[in-house]
């Protein structure tokens, strides 16, 4: 088994041991989404109009909750130090770690995204769009959030701080998601173009941030 595969296996095992990490974002989203129709008292038409905003906020919050403390356990038990003192590329390792974490939370949530859309009366043709937009959007948001998590790894109770430092960086993703979901509501063909744009942005984030993440963890490690 190659070292990389061993790492993937370890990360996956840890995720499997803690299924709540995957299930909580889904329950959270379902609950919050169903709260909106309850408190807003809107017609189906109106609900459909506010749906993109609601869904984006939910995605944003669940992505931030996923990333908070993403590196803390590894850092505290000495795994981070061992990874740095291993002959393997930390860029690759942290990219992998965040990807596994995305798959277990963001991707799982994306599978449920059409259900959320259904609750808010999004049109039926938006099922696939919702899934793809949520998958790409959460991938992007989790990688950006991971930068914040790595920077604050030695601090405790970082939830608010994390939101504070990372939220402005999330704006392009939020804007694109809003454009996608609104266009999907209106049944515009331009949706696929926007999705492609989001894909490009996500690709860039995915390739650039692991480098920042490992640099941030390194400076925290060195100052211990």
């Amino acid at each position: 088994m190659t070292p990389w595969l061993a790492f993937v296996k370890k990360e996956c095992l840890q995720v499997i041991r803690k299924p709540s990490a995957s299930l909580l974002p889904i329950f959270f989203s379902l609950m919050v989404t169903s709260l909106f129709p309850m408190v807003l008292n809107l017609s189906e038409q109106q609900l459909q109009q506010v749906a993109p905003a609601v869904l984006i906020m939910i995605l944003l919050l669940s992505a931030l909750m996923t990333t908070e403390g993403l590196f803390q356990a590894d850092f505290d038990d000495g795994t981070t130090a061992l990874l740095f003192a291993s002959p393997h590329s930390n860029y690759l390792l942290y990219g992998t770690k965040v990807l596994v974490s995305w798959f277990s939370s963001g991707f799982m949530l994306s599978v449920f995204a059409p259900v959320l859309g259904f609750i808010l009366h999004m049109p039926q043709h938006s099922v696939l769009t919702l899934f793809v937009a949520f998958a790409l959007g959460s991938l992007n948001l989790i990688f950006l959030g991971a930068v914040g998590a790595a920077l604050t790894v030695t601090l405790r109770n970082t939830g608010m701080l994390l939101i504070f430092i990372i939220l402005p960086m999330n704006v392009p993703v939020l804007v694109l998601l809003a454009a996608i979901l609104n266009a999907s509501n209106q049944g515009l063909a331009v949706v696929s173009n926007y999705l492609a744009l989001l894909g490009a942005l996500t690709l860039m984030t995915t390739f650039l941030t692991p480098w920042v993440i490992s640099a941030a963890l390194k400076i925290n490690l060195e100052s211990q």
């Binding site: 920077l151 430092i165 704006v171 392009p172 100052s223």
Partner: peptide, 20 residues
Amino acid sequence: KSAAILALVGTVNIPIIYKS
């Protein structure tokens, strides 16, 4: 050091934010 890293990430991000 942390602030420096965050600021650098910000500089890459600002054009994208403005553009978007």
